[in-house]
Design a protein around this nucleic acid. Sequence first.
DNA 1: GCAACATATGTTATCGCTAACAATTGTGAT
DNA 2: ATCACAATTGTTAGCGATAACATATGTTGC
Lengths: 339, 339
Amino acid sequence: MVTIVDVAKRANVSTMTVSRVINHAASVSDATRARVLLAMRELNYVPNSIARSLVSGRTHTIGLIIADLTNSFFTTLARGAEDAAHKHLHRLVICNHDDDIDKERTYIEALISARVDGLIITPAGNDSVENLKIIQQHGIPFIFVDRIVHSIKADHVVGDSMSGAYELTSHLLRQGHSHIGIVSGPLNIHTASERLKGYQAALAEFGAEVRQELVLYMPYGPGADTAVPELDQQIRGLLSQNPAPTAIFALNNVIAVQVLRSLRRLGLAVPDDVALACFEEVDPYELMHLDISTAIQPAYAFGEESVNILFRRIDDPDKPFESVVLKPRLQLWPSHRKG
Amino acid sequence: MVTIVDVAKRANVSTMTVSRVINHAASVSDATRARVLLAMRELNYVPNSIARSLVSGRTHTIGLIIADLTNSFFTTLARGAEDAAHKHLHRLVICNHDDDIDKERTYIEALISARVDGLIITPAGNDSVENLKIIQQHGIPFIFVDRIVHSIKADHVVGDSMSGAYELTSHLLRQGHSHIGIVSGPLNIHTASERLKGYQAALAEFGAEVRQELVLYMPYGPGADTAVPELDQQIRGLLSQNPAPTAIFALNNVIAVQVLRSLRRLGLAVPDDVALACFEEVDPYELMHLDISTAIQPAYAFGEESVNILFRRIDDPDKPFESVVLKPRLQLWPSHRKG
DNA sequence: GCAACATATGTTATCGCTAACAATTGTGAT
DNA sequence: ATCACAATTGTTAGCGATAACATATGTTGC
């Protein structure tokens, strides 16, 4: 591999002069600069940023730890982050923890070892605290995206899960659905507990009963992409409660797809047999004519904003924390069948 | 930041001994090892892999350059690559070139500078040759995924675009559609030209006329996600040819979504008014009851296989090139309306 | 012509770690 | 007790770049 020494020799200058040319430093004569540039071109020299990082302590790399890249919400978020990082001349290292604390820890340590300039993280759950403390101990600037962990204070970009869920549930109630089933995720995940709260708040507000037997739980993401065998049974159980729910609220897009498939297997149509609402991260359904009321989050902005805030944090480590709450856009469909 | 020197001091040994403990090298007494491990734990020491890379020349990082992370095909591919890289204890740096040669070049240089151990690339187009030569000049092991560039020989994992397109077109022809429109992508992209060839081959085989006026072109990916204003007009133009096509073949998933939206705006139903076939990279439509015949590619395997082959290449730079062609899975729907 | 300073270039040390070799200690065979 | 050799630990140099300081030119003004 060609190094700065090779270029220096060929251009008949010291390595320092080459370094100056690379870094556009002043005080290099035009003649010398030209000679060095020529040598660089002739040798196909590309500076070794590893070596540069060792000296400067900066890697121009940002770590992005998310739940699952195949979830379209995170995909779009990642793309937003990538574009923003690119503007700052930084590279993005993307890691998926699949809501698994141990996997999250492995990645955090790898990224610390790689000396990323900063870290954007969707914590795997409330138990991520220990993992997050490791980041803090190493003084690496980081920001929460999508999910927070209450005991750790940091910048964050999140959606308004609570009010989004409240609105979706209210909508169903207004449509005459007085009994609404909900398929929740693990409650140790911030967005899941918030959305459940929003659902309950809406029920309370409308004087509807909060019935524990109308709440199902399933994984939030990983593995959920494959069929969930028991789900059909659970959904059937849910719908045979007395009084039976006439609508179902799915806590996120992955869950919604599972529920939709399950309903289909059970021969039930949406929304004619059962109305469906979903806290959905993007909107592929729009295209499909499916009448599913959704709270659509600006996923791209989640990623973009996170990166921008992270860079502000890097520039000024002591500034007060920023808290950005992005409202979901509601897309409400009338249900065809009333309670 | 804690370094190996701090640990060495605390454990009262030389840095070399600490290094030996970190790297599980033999010939460290149990007592010393214990002392070092304790010091490491007490100081929260995490080895600096930047420094390690500078010495070893390996970064444990793989570059993945794709067209667009928000395209579900590439998302799933990336996830497959990430999982495989993780198994090899490597990190993945993901870059999107949006089918733009200059952007591709920028990323390639950045990744060379970062001294990635290898590179997986979906070339932006046939003009990527110069960019790819840069990779070769630097002796960085790389592999093509999804698309190849003929003038550059390298390992590759691609789909069978030609036969997939042939099959889809044949299916439409068998359904009685004797005039089939096609919305193609830029022909300097390998998969686009291959799929067009497959379409033409099928027409020829069935004795159907290849009509140039039934071929539309649009971008393959970037920007295509937003509305294409002229598309409605073009589609309308396409459908008003004489004789009019009764089916449309969309060359990839992004194009299919555009066409679908456009047809919807024009008030045309699929497949009742116009049948649709699509070289689709994954299968969200399956869920949606839409009768679109698709050639579904095993995107996850694309990524996974690429990584595995890349590591074999790294281990043995002189072995013969591997060529993996993954067949798409055909999902063929009967059309409701016959030519 | 020469001090005084700007401009251009070079030298040395260092970032954190490890390869290669060196030194020390301990062990068993004779 | 002594030598040969293995096991353990240390020393030095260097990966490729740059910061900080040093030196060599050129330029200006009087």
